[in-house]
């Protein structure tokens, strides 16, 4: 991820800020500039998600790209937020505990870094709700 690209998405990554269409009631994450249902008639506004949801499905990554090698084996899941949108994120918990339907909440973590000399990227991952 380049620095400008990260900077443009920073608020979305830090605080789960997506969008909401006031016309049809749709919720979107990552944010959309246009409502995919209402098209030009939609009224899109920023929306901050509560950060709670549940695991729709997951996998355990044992063989990762170089930047994530230190984290293996890690859990990568599709999370359905309580407001509706689905997103892909790491879930930080024991591999024995992870399961479909698990209630989760957002946590502020390092998402990655560009070597020892580069930027550190921060943002949202998920942890079990009962933590």
């Amino acid at each position: 991820m380049s620095v400008p690209r990260f900077w443009r998405r920073l608020k979305n990554l830090y605080n789960l800020i997506g969008t909401h269409c006031k016309k049809c009631g749709g919720f979107y994450y990552p944010p959309r500039n246009m409502c995919p249902r209402c098209r030009r008639n939609g009224v899109i506004v920023p929306f901050k998600y509560k950060g709670t949801g549940e695991v729709v499905t997951f996998t355990i990554v044992h063989s990762a790209a170089k930047d994530y090698a230190m984290l293996t084996p890690y859990i990568l899941a599709i999370i359905k937020l309580d407001e509706g949108p689905r997103l892909t994120s790491q879930v930080i918990c024991s591999h024995e505990d992870i399961h479909i339907g698990m209630k989760v909440k957002s946590a502020f973590r390092k998402l990655g870094e560009e070597s020892d000399r580069g930027m550190i990227y921060y943002g949202t991952k998920f942890i079990p709700l009962e933590n």
Binding site: L71, Q90, I92, F108, R109, K110, I120, Y122, K125
Partner: peptide, 16 residues
């Protein structure tokens, strides 16, 4: 700390 935790992530959680 976890592998993806540092002074900043800990400060953010405490501040929140």
């Amino acid at each position: 700390p976890d592998m993806d935790e540092d002074t900043i992530t800990i400060a953010v959680e405490a501040a929140r």
